[in-house]
Design a protein around this nucleic acid. Sequence first.
DNA 1: GTCATTATGATACCGCGTCTCACATTAGCA
DNA 2: TGCTAATGTGAGACGCGGTATCATAATGAC
Lengths: 133, 133
Amino acid sequence: MAVLEDRGYRSTAPRRAIIEILDGKLDGFTAEEIGNELPWVGRATIFRTIKLLREVGIVCRLNLVDGSPRYSLSRVEHHHHTVCVMCGNVGEFRAATMERLMRIIGNEIPGDIVGHRIELYVTCERCVAGEEN
Amino acid sequence: MAVLEDRGYRSTAPRRAIIEILDGKLDGFTAEEIGNELPWVGRATIFRTIKLLREVGIVCRLNLVDGSPRYSLSRVEHHHHTVCVMCGNVGEFRAATMERLMRIIGNEIPGDIVGHRIELYVTCERCVAGEEN
DNA sequence: GTCATTATGATACCGCGTCTCACATTAGCA
DNA sequence: TGCTAATGTGAGACGCGGTATCATAATGAC
């Protein structure tokens, strides 16, 4: 919440509630999920708040394999995501090697790299374990 | 078109028209764009055909920085995309280093990597040149 | 040419997200 | 504490990308 107040945004009940829920969501969430947990908050407000948190940089939007959207709370500074293709759970990882590689590739292709999106699709440990039953 | 026939799909006028248009689209396209160029083809058919071509592996779906979708004809086997943040044009590049890196990262994170999505956002040469005016 | 199979177009529908607009809350200040 | 401008909110309409339905049309194997 401090993150928003520091930028001049108001501390309101919906915003506080959403942020509190997010803290518990360790592996991604959807707007719909939040709506279900906070039925007293309007749909528009949920999207507005997610958008705000994305602009502030503490929430990321990523895509599942099928292209459907999912959000994730950012814990480390610069990172990428792993998304389980079976359960949709999201993980984060940092890879300095990746950044270095980006710079190398930057020299090989025309134009200037201004950003990138990297998503690794995985089958997570939980799902792999569950399959054996 | 042969790609589709080889898999048992029929050669129809809409499919032929769409594929022909795609051949000229060197830097990505949207479903809407095709619809404008082929007003006699139904919207559903355009989406169906794009989907088919994706399944066959000769069209990729990618996201612009803002998340909006764009398609691109695949020319090389395994590749990734560069997307210009200014004009939306799409390029392809291969990076063996990237694949090697994937394997390394695979050992560092929990779960098995089954796929990945990598998009590089760039400002393309054309746009950079244009800016200087 | 016949006919089963497959594809098509129109249209309704869905999911995700944004816009609008009247109303409610907030925070700053007396 | 009470006022007020600024900001945020909820309901609902709307937009866009894409899919489902279903009656009709085209395809291609014989």
